[in-house]
Amino acid sequence: MPSETATTTQAAYPSRLNAFVSGLWRIVRSIHLPLSDPFAMIGIIIYLVFFLVAVFANQIAPHDPTEILFTESYDLAADRLPGEDGFVLGTTSLGRDIFSQLVYGSQSALLIGLTAAAVVAVIGTIVGLISGYFGGVVDMMLMRLADIAFGIPFLPFVIVLAAFMEPSIWNVVFAMALILWRDTGRVVRSQVLSLRTRAYVEAARVSGSSNLKIVFRHIAPNILPLSFLYGSIAIGWAILTEASISFLGFGDPETISWGYMLQDAYASQALSTGAYYWFIPPGVCIVLVVVAGFFISRGYEEILFPKLKE
């Protein structure tokens, strides 16, 4: 008997795994990743590379990014050029390894980018769904809130927020959650307005489906690509904003980010001393991530609005 139960659980396990995998695949498919578009593919690859670097930062980075390093003869290893004394990208004026900072910077970039994207996509999608589907007073109130959010300038708002709260990379995420849902919300709402008049939505209502079921089963799957598009745009925005905030000196001094590196380089007059190895790599990383988001959104554009292709 025990052996029999063991085999049944074993038999049940792969089927449950299968169900999980196929469910995951369904979600991936419903997002409609623009895999056929070469630019979008490049964007996805860039994201993937940064993702892997961030995950394996401990293994990749040769040094602690905040550690002040010394040479074997106990000299401060400051302002080393790339390749000198084994520092891949050289060191800062304070003797910190630039390559390690770059690697760890991808961690905070990833953290901010992904959380901000998730927050923006989730809040915007929920607001858009509720607003578009239920309409009436709820719609009016949510859209007036969106109007207010549209009226607030983003960067100054983050600075003010940073002034009121402790400097932290989460300020950016929080500010994006407070403001940047507006774009996603508006676009999702307009899409829902058109979807909810489809005959199959009415058919679902006639067959006795609740509003919740109609929204999640018949409407939400159609707007998932839109949410994901705005999420991927938000990744770039979040990283750019964090970099701006850090560069302006409102960032978290404890966390290594690309913006922090730029600020450090700027404050140490790396530009006038010509230490390109210091400020160009973080700049390039920021550009790459933002461009990757742009490429992916471009790929989505062709999926979502095929008529624009000409």
């Binding site: 489809r198 005959a199 199959y200 009415e202 058919a203 679902a204 006639v206 089963r217 018949h218």
Partner: peptide, 12 residues
């Protein structure tokens, strides 16, 4: 119950 006019539209 309702039987829809356009069967191409009435099913998700």
């Amino acid at each position: 119950q309702l039987i829809f006019q356009n069967p191409f539209e009435a099913l998700n």
